[in-house]
């Protein structure tokens, strides 16, 4: 499953990363090396094996429906890259 510059471009867009043309080829090469190593997984006989998402198979603890979190506006807005009137600012979003 070799990946080329086009696949890199598609995946980079999904991940919102910018890959310049100059680095694309070297990057695909690297990724192919990694995926080549990862492809050893195909050797495994996993028929009838349930995927294991967590090492310990326990269930989700549930929280009571209570308001416990404080208003943190004054802590978080000052560390935001851009904010105004209590809102985070981004370039205009067109729907």
């Amino acid at each position: 499953m070799a990946i080329d510059s086009q696949v890199v471009a598609r995946v980079a867009h999904l991940a919102r990363l910018q890959v310049d043309d100059g680095e694309s080829e070297a990057l695909s090469e690297r990724l192919n090396e990694i995926l080549g190593m990862v492809d050893q997984l195909q050797q495994a006989d996993v028929s009838d094996v349930e995927p294991l998402a967590h090492p310990l198979e326990v269930s989700q603890p549930l929280r009571d429906d209570r308001v416990t979190e404080p208003d943190v506006r004054d802590k978080v807005l000052p560390i935001a890259p851009a904010s105004e009137e209590g809102c985070f600012l981004v370039p205009r979003v067109i729907e």
């Binding site: 997984l41 195909q42 495994a44 996993v46 094996v49 349930e50 995927p51 294991l52 998402a53």
Partner: peptide
């Protein structure tokens, strides 16, 4: 598949 191997 990786998660299946994880179980193994």
């Amino acid at each position: 598949r990786a998660q299946q191997v994880r179980r193994l």
